[in-house]
Nucleic acid binder design. Structure first.
Lengths: 253, 253
DNA sequence: AGAATAGTGTCTATGAGACAGTATGAG
DNA sequence: CTCATACTGTCTCATAGACACTATTCT
C-alpha cells in the first residue's frame, strides 16, 4: 500500500474547538455557547469552527478566539505575543468515528487562558454565550450523564476535562498563571488565581516568599495598589521566565 | 455562519505519524522508514499512514505501530494494556497548509515508547527501515538544514523533536521509563534508560535509593540477574504507580 | 587479586510548610 | 480603635546531591 495515495483518502472535516479558561469571582470558568441547531440543539458547547482551506491550525484557533471574545492571541506556531494577548496552545485532537453523528469530524482542541473579561461577546445574540464555572459543568456531566440536556454537546465534556487538567498541571511548572491576570497584578491576585484553578487554599506568606524568590517569574513595576483592601501591595508584571525553577507544587501530595 | 455545514467544509486527509522511541546500546533511537515515492523520495520519514473511515485516531496509531514493529500497544482511548505492550499516547497535531505539497494533510502524531527490539520489520523490503539515534537525526536537521537529503521528510524533524522532548519530560514525573525496559529489569538497567533519554550521567547510588524509595514505582520479583556483570542485581517489575511522587528530576537545572 | 556492578550509610545544602510577628491602609 | 491584607523572619522536616564504604560476582 502506498503511504500517500491522494485518490484514496477518506474525506474528513477538520475543526478547532476552544477551551477558554478564566478566573471570575474566585472560580475557574470556561466559555460555552448555546447551539442553535441540530445535533445537540439548545445544548451548551465549546466554541469552535471549521479550519479554512489555507489556514494553519493555530491560526484557526486564534481566529475563533478573536471572534468569540475579542481577545488577541498569538498563533502558537508564530512568535509574536501581543500585549493583551491570551495564552493559546494546542490541547489534543479528538476524532472518534461517531463523535459527530452526521459526518467524520476531527477536532483539534486548543486551550486558551485569559484574564477576567467583562462579558462574552456573542455573535449578535445575547443569551447564546456565557462563562460557566467548570466545576458546575463537570459535575453535571458526572452526575446527570452525557445525555442530560444540561451536559455539554458532543464529547466536549471530555475536552473540557482534559483542558482543565492541562491548565492545572501547567501552572505548576510554568509561569502561565500570569495569563489569567491583568498586565499588572499583585502577589495576592496571583495567589487567588492558583487557588481558583487548583481549588485549594494556599498559605499567603509562603506563597509570597516562594513566588517572589523564583528568578524571572515576577518583575516589580514600582507601583502599588489597594484594590484588594488592606495594606498597599506591590504591582508586578510577568517576567521573562516561562519555566519555573523550582516549580510551584500543588499541595496535598 | 452555521458552525457545521456539511456541504461547506474543505476536504482534508487525516493521517497518523509515529515517533517510536527505544533505547539501543545507550542511545535513544527512533524508527524511520525510507520513502519510496515522491515527494521526498529516498528520504527518511517517520512511519505513518491514513486514518481509515471507521477508525479512531488511537486505533489507527496502534495499527500502524503493529504493522511497522509487531508491537502490541493499547489504544490510548481504550483501557486494556497487553503484556508486551508498548506505551502509546497522542503527541500533537500538525496541519500547516503546505506541509504536504500535494494536498491538505493533517497529521495526528503519536508517541510510542518500546523496549529494545531485535530489528525493524520492514513491510518486505530490507533496507527500508532502521533505528536511528535521535541525536544524529536532530543534529542533521540543525546543521544541514531541512532540505538536505539526510534530513527527515515533511515536518518530521519537528515532530520528532517534539516527541523526544515529551518523552524527556514525561519520565521525570511518571513511571514511563519502564516502558523502555523488558518486563523484568534491574535498577541499573532503568538508570541506563534515564541516562540515554536525558543524555546525562546519574549517580548510581542516589538513583538506587531514590527509585526504590518511591512508593509504587518498582516491585521486586524475587529473582536476580548478573547479565550486566558484577554483583547479582535484584529484578523488578513496573509497579502500579503512574505518577511519581516525588518526581525524578533532570540534573543541571 | 582486580575489576565491575549492586547496595547502604552519612553528611550537607536547599526548599516546603507551619506559624509568630510587623507594616500599612480603610472604615 | 478593629479589621483586612501585605510582607518578613524563624523553625522543622524532607529530599537532592556528594561521596565513603561494603557486598558479590567474573576473569
Amino acid at each position: 500500500m502506498p503511504p500517500y495515495d491522494p485518490s484514496a483518502f477518506p474525506p474528513f472535516a477538520v475543526t478547532v474547538d476552544l477551551v477558554v479558561l478564566t478566573v471570575r469571582s474566585h472560580a475557574l470558568c470556561t466559555l460555552v455557547v448555546r447551539r442553535g441547531e441540530e445535533p445537540f440543539q439548545g445544548r451548551w458547547a465549546l466554541p469552535g469552527g471549521f479550519v479554512r482551506d489555507d489556514e494553519d491550525l493555530g491560526a484557526a484557533a486564534a481566529r475563533e478566539l478573536a471572534e468569540e471574545t475579542g481577545l488577541c492571541a498569538h498563533d502558537p506556531s508564530a512568535a509574536s505575543v501581543p500585549d493583551n494577548g491570551a495564552h493559546l496552545e494546542q490541547l489534543a485532537t479528538y476524532g472518534a468515528p461517531k463523535r459527530d453523528p452526521r459526518m467524520r469530524v476531527v477536532s483539534v482542541a486548543h486551550l486558551a487562558l485569559a484574564p477576567d473579561l467583562p462579558a462574552p461577546r456573542p455573535g449578535g445574540d445575547a443569551n447564546s454565550a456565557r462563562w460557566a464555572p467548570v466545576e458546575e459543568l463537570l459535575d453535571q456531566a458526572r452526575a446527570a450523564g452525557p445525555d442530560s440536556p444540561d451536559a455539554l454537546a458532543f464529547d466536549h465534556a471530555q475536552i473540557l476535562s482534559d483542558g482543565v487538567e492541562r491548565a492545572r498541571s501547567k501552572i505548576e511548572y510554568s509561569s502561565l498563571a500570569t495569563a489569567f491576570c491583568p498586565p499588572e497584578f499583585t502577589v495576592g491576585e496571583l495567589r487567588r488565581v492558583y487557588e481558583a484553578v487548583w481549588g485549594v487554599s494556599l498559605d499567603p506568606r509562603n506563597f509570597h516568599r516562594k513566588v517572589t524568590g523564583t528568578p524571572g517569574f515576577l518583575v516589580p513595576t514600582g507601583g502599588t495598589t489597594t484594590r484588594q483592601g488592606g495594606r498597599p501591595a506591590q504591582l508586578f508584571r510577568a517576567g521573562g521566565a516561562t519555566l519555573l525553577n523550582p516549580p510551584m507544587l500543588r499541595p496535598e501530595v
